[in-house]
Each structure stands twice: as structure tokens, then as C-alpha cells.
Design a binder for these strands. Sequence first.
DNA 1: GATGAATGAGGTTTCATTCAT
DNA 2: TATGAATGAAACCTCATTCAT
Lengths: 234, 234, 234, 234
Amino acid sequence: MTERAVSAEEFDDPVDSEGAPRASDGRVPGRRGRATRQRLLECTREMLASHSYRDLRVVDIARQAGTSPATFYQYFPDVNTAIVALAEEMAEQGNDLVVQLVGRSWSGATGVQTAEAIARGYVQLWEQNWPLMRVLDLTSAEGEHRFRAIRVRLLNQFTEALAEVIRGEQEAGRQTAELDPMATAGVLVSMLAHVASHLYGFEHYGIRTADLERSMAHVLYTTVTGQKPPKSKD
Amino acid sequence: MTERAVSAEEFDDPVDSEGAPRASDGRVPGRRGRATRQRLLECTREMLASHSYRDLRVVDIARQAGTSPATFYQYFPDVNTAIVALAEEMAEQGNDLVVQLVGRSWSGATGVQTAEAIARGYVQLWEQNWPLMRVLDLTSAEGEHRFRAIRVRLLNQFTEALAEVIRGEQEAGRQTAELDPMATAGVLVSMLAHVASHLYGFEHYGIRTADLERSMAHVLYTTVTGQKPPKSKD
Amino acid sequence: MTERAVSAEEFDDPVDSEGAPRASDGRVPGRRGRATRQRLLECTREMLASHSYRDLRVVDIARQAGTSPATFYQYFPDVNTAIVALAEEMAEQGNDLVVQLVGRSWSGATGVQTAEAIARGYVQLWEQNWPLMRVLDLTSAEGEHRFRAIRVRLLNQFTEALAEVIRGEQEAGRQTAELDPMATAGVLVSMLAHVASHLYGFEHYGIRTADLERSMAHVLYTTVTGQKPPKSKD
Amino acid sequence: MTERAVSAEEFDDPVDSEGAPRASDGRVPGRRGRATRQRLLECTREMLASHSYRDLRVVDIARQAGTSPATFYQYFPDVNTAIVALAEEMAEQGNDLVVQLVGRSWSGATGVQTAEAIARGYVQLWEQNWPLMRVLDLTSAEGEHRFRAIRVRLLNQFTEALAEVIRGEQEAGRQTAELDPMATAGVLVSMLAHVASHLYGFEHYGIRTADLERSMAHVLYTTVTGQKPPKSKD
DNA sequence: GATGAATGAGGTTTCATTCAT
DNA sequence: TATGAATGAAACCTCATTCAT
């Protein structure tokens, strides 16, 4: 990537300490400016859904937003920064959702429901945000520091919560103490993340999402609680 | 306008029906040529390990190999084709290895060992080939047809073998019939693939590979056989 | 892979339905942009006069216009498209001029003057536009569809008008009915076009343009009217 | 074009004073070498028929001949030189043919036959050699000195012979003395050459070759002899 | 004599980025 | 605040040409 006049550093956090996004010239944008910024963000999201990340160009986003590249640079130093802004938003939702779920009871039939809710919730989160998720996946394996950070944040809170539950089950003697809770939770989250992000591929291969959710719930339940799921009554 | 001697189609497949790679002018390379081709492949592999896929340039590979871009184009029409050649090789090994493992017994303590061997084998395969695996992962989510094909080949054979084992366990009444065998196998393979490809991230976060392997083996064993693993004696 | 804002199809025709040229990003250029576009066109014309068509490079045109290749590509997708734009212009003039001439009377001394005016007019049109004419000639024998189309347009209207006159003379019994009017007109236009485009060669060989014009006028007159030209009085 | 070790000068005449073609290293090729050279020439001719001159590449010719570029350079310093060799051959035939024709009688019905024979002969010569003719046409309008020379040779001998006939007719008082014989002959030859080289275009436009030949014969006869052709009896 | 192989050189094309208005 | 326009820089790719065998 080419060097730029304004360092990425300054832009790293597109929202400054007072919470207001800044334009490239340091001014706090007014009403019209904020609208433009928002429009650019939405178009970035759209383009991400229809183009591969590799082929995402500033010109495209700008044109999609009915404006020019120069305007884009007024609000974001580069495409990644815009994506980061979108991803931050998503990470928020993600944590809200999933943390709720982990707080539920894991005992007996309710536990099975919890596991199912998690599997379904995860899949939905991915379905709603797959373009962004895809980019986080792509880039966390490679360079971009900021993406990795968000991804870690997104997965970790959940991993830790899950590890905590596992630890509880171990202490209650229901799950074997041989398993490291964090490693086990990590494994489970990996499962959820990978399946969710390859749903399309599975469908293509004739494997249905409902079946995947059921299998994941099963794995989740048994691995967390160390128990066979009780016979479902339906 | 310009005509190419070898159609893109034919060139797409770097190995013709007689198994001989072709140069861009349609000739079968001799000893020296084959050496150069091989050198370029190795350098592609190296560059893949040290650079992000996005930033992999023909110039770089050529320079690394101590030759010129023109020479690169003598053997491959583009970078992806070179990567495909590498990936094909890897897919071969991958299947060999993993299929063997699935053939083993899944009953009792031996079953646990099978599960452990699979987890370890998978992790090792990834450790040995992570740069390539990463690219397959990246691109299967996006465009490139040929990569997806290899990835599918790599994962599917294993998924199907595993599904077969699960089906057996279901028929033997050890595992619940509520789970779809292919979906369940897909979920397990996803787990293996995702954990394996993010080992580095886990280590970074203080989670040890050995623990991950143990957790994965546990999940594998319980999900395939529907049984709790027998107490290990060590 | 990459998407272009304006499809090649649309861009092929540098003037859209509302008659406004478009830049490569789909926008209608403003005053400054139009000036640049025009400058590039003029330089293309100049380069065509001093370089062989084969050796005409985007870089050269851009340099000549005091700008960079990137700027050229902002206005034309390739050199040929720029040439087409020039040729369209010329075709306009050409038809205007020549059609007028054919409308004149062909009887007696006036007819001779008509023939002379045509010969002279044709030669002048060529002299003013020989670089373009040369390219049309070159390429109509080979590939480029758009050039051929313009050339056909340029020659055909004249051929058809001339054929009409010949048909009239045949009906009036002055010219033998054995000749196919279109073929005959085609032959005459060929004569004009070829002589006009090789004037320089003839001069080089000691044959004067005035003599060529007189000979062509003679051939035109006798072939169209079937009469010997009346004795001129000077 | 890039500079080369062996100057074009040395190669200008591919047949030296003793009539034997030389290889690039100065040796007179033996039987096998001559066969290769001939094969390359024939393939050059073939490629010229199927590819545009602009796109004719050494590699293509070599491959077509089942050999390698390096071999091509053993016999010709560049593609043009090979073409020149072919064109020389053709020029020979061309002159033979046409000179014969001009020697015939131009009086009365025989004269008409002479004109017809010339038109037909010209068209045939072109039909047999159009790829080469096309290249001569292309390049004589632009740079290449050697091509122009051949073209001039090809057309001039005929032009001069025709001019001689016209001069005779003028002296005999049958044709007006106002026309310059060389200019008039030049105009006629131009007509023949241009029509012959655009036959395909005419056909495409629904104008038949036979009609073109008849019209050209008519123009030839009337312009050379200054007479209306006698009524044909069929 | 023939030719595999290598490559310098150079045009093409794309884009992120800037700047003057 | 917005944006037309311009462009440096860099990758792509192709070919004529050479050389060692």
C-alpha cells in the first residue's frame, strides 16, 4: 500500500474521544457531512456483499454512493478504515446477542434449548453480516491488525463465557477435568464460526442448515455439559 | 485479437492428459525447464508463507527465484495457476493421510486414540501447509473456482468417510439417530479445519495446541460414537 | 473479475445517445475535461501523420499532449477508439462534400466540370485527411469492425449516388445497359480513392497531381455519361 | 523495432550474388537447411492469410513450421525479410502475366478482349496472392522501404506499358492528347489494384466480381482507346 | 543444423490519491 | 462541502532476440 500524507494512526479510531467522527481536514462534519459519511458506509457494506474484498475499489464505493472518490477521502483515509467502522458496529451486536445466550441455564432440557439457541443465533448473526464476517475471516488470517482485533473481540467474549460454563460443569463433576476449558470453548466457537461462514458451501453440497444447527447444538450441549442430551419429546 | 497457441482452458490445467506440464508455447519442458518450473513453485510456496495472498506479485516470485517475470509466464499464465499446482499436490497427501485415519477402529480406548490421531494429523497437515490452506480458505469464500474445487476435494472425502462411521454408530444404536450424519461430519470437519488454521491465533491468546488437540479429540470421539470416552489410564 | 462502470459496448461508442462523450468513469466531462479530450484527439491526428499506424502508442499520444497515459485512458479505452472519433468527424464532411457534387448536372460541358470538381474534391478530402484515410484503408483490409463501418459509410453514399446517375444515363440511352451501375460506380470510386491515397507515390514518380485529376475527371465523365467529353475551349 | 547484431543491410537481399540464400552465420545452407528455409517461407505465407499483419509473430510462424523461433532467425533476420522474399517471387509472376497482356492488340473487338483479359488477369493475380498484396498495400502507404520498392516494380512496369499504348492511341488521333499518358495509365492501374484488393468488400455489399470485371474492362478500353467499345455479339 | 530456455525492454492498464476550484 | 481532473507508481504481459548445448 502506498504511503499517505495523513498517517493511518490518526485515523485508526474513526471516532474520537468525544465520539464524533472527524473529516480528513480535522473538522467535525455538520449534518450534511454526517449524512454523506453514513451513505458511504452503507455503500461500502453493499459493495462488500457483491464484490470480492480483493476487488473492492474506492471508485466503486464512491460511484455507488453517487459521489466521487475525493469525497470518500474526506471521510476515510482508506477502504479498510471504512470497513473497520462497519465491523465495530457489528461486533457490538454480536457480543450483546451471544453473551445473553451463554447466561442461560445449561441443565437438562433447558440446556439443550440453550445450545440450540446459540447455534441458531450464531448462524443468524453470520447470515446477517456475512460480507463483513468474510472479510474479518480473510484478513485475520493475514495482515490487517485492526481486523484481527475486532475478530478477537467478537469471538473472545463468547469463548470466555463458554469456558466459564465449562469450568462450572467440571467443578460440578459433570464434565471431565481433563479438558482445558478455554481450549474446549475455543474449539466450540471455531466450529460455530466456520460452519456459519460456510453455510452456502454446505447447502451447495446438499447439507441443510437446519441439520447443521441441530448437529452443532448437539456437539455444544454434550461438550459443555458432558451429558447426553435428554430425549426430546417431539 | 492475438491468438494463443495453447488455449486458456488447456493451460488452466497445468498437467495435460499425459501428465506432462506444458510451457506457455505448448512445448513439454526438458530437464532444465522442469527444474526452473519447480524452483518457481517452491518460491511461490515460500512467498505465500511470508506475504499476504493479496500482495503476492509475479515480480516477487520471479525475483525470489532469481529469474525474470517473463520466465514465470513461460510456465504459468498467472499466480493462481501456480498456487493451484501446489494445492493439487497437497490435496493428494491430505486425502491419503486422513482417509487412513478414518479407517481405524472407533471402539473403546482405541477409538479415543483414533480421534486423537485425527486431531493431531489434521493439525500437522495444516502446520505443514498453512500458507496454502490459508489461501484455499480465503478464496473459497470468494471467487476462484479452481481453489474451491480443491478445497472441496480435500474436505469432502474426509467428511464422507466420517459420515459413514457415524451412520454405522447410529445403526449400532450407540449414537442418536436424530443427527444427520453428513451434517454432523461437516460440523466436525469444520471444527478441525478452523482450529487448525487459527492455531497461531490461539497460541497468541495463551491456548496451547496440545489442549486444543485434546479437546478436539474429545469432541470427535463423543460426537462420532455417542459415548463418553473411557477413562484414560495415564 | 473486475467490473467496469461503463461496459465496453457503451464505451465503444464515444458519444452516447444524448451526444455527450463520456469519461472512463461514466461521468460527462466538464469544460476542462472536454478540452483535454480534444487535445488528445488532435495529438492523435498529428501522431498519425508522422508515425505509422502500427507504431502508434498510447504513451506517445499522451506525451505529445503533455499529459500521462492515465489521462488518455480517462477519455478513451484505446487508441483505436480515439481514431474512430476522428474518423467519424471526417466521414461527416466527406459525405457532405461529395454528395453535393454528385447532385450537379452531368450534361455537356457542365458535366465535365462536375467530373472535374469531383476528382478535385476527392483529392482534396484525401489531402486534408490522409493520415486518417490511410488508417481506414489499412484496417478495412484487416480486422477492426468500426473502421470498416466508417469506410463503408464514407464510400457507399457516394457510390450509390453515382450509380443512380449512371442508371439515369443508361435509361436515357446514352450509356450502354451492359454495365451494372453499382459495379461501375464502385469501380470509379475505387479509382478515386486509390489515386487520392497514393498521390505522394505518384508525385515521387514524376506524375503530377493536376494530370491525375484531369485523367480521373475524364474517366469519370466518359464512364458515367458514355460520351466523349466535348472539346474544352481553353 | 529493436537494434540487432546483424544489420538489416546485410540481409536486405536474401539471395546473394551467386544466387544462394545465406544463413545468419554466413554459411550456405545444405539440402536440409534449404528445406527448412522453404518451409518457413510457406508458413509465413499461410500465417499471412489467416492473421493480420500487425499480429504476425515470429513464434507463430516457427510453431506453424514445427520448429522454434531460434531456427527462424537462422534464415531471416526478421519477419519482413521473409515477406520480402515471398513478395519478390510474386512480383516476378505479376510482371510476366501483365506484360503479356499489354502487348496484345487494342483495336476493335480484340481490344475489348484485351481489356477484359487484363481485368480478369489482375483480379486473379490478386485472388491468388491477396495476403501478400494486402501487406504491400498496407506498408507501401507507411514505412517499409523494401515493400514499397516491390510494389512500385509490380505496378510500374504495367503502368509504363499501358502509358505506351495510350501514347500510341493519342498519336493515331484516336484518343485526346489532353491526357497525360502516365497519369492516365496510373489512374487505370490504381483502379485495377484497388478493386482487386477490395473484392471481398464488394461481394459483401452484393456487387459481383463478374460485373466489376466487366466495368473495369469497359473503363480500360474506353480510356485507352478513346472509343466506345463495339457492340458485343453475344 | 536445430532448439530449449531465458530475458531485456517496453507498452498497457489500473488505481489510490491529490489538488484546485 | 463536494468534486472534476490529473497522475505517479507499479503491476501486467508480450515478444523479439540471444545463447549454450
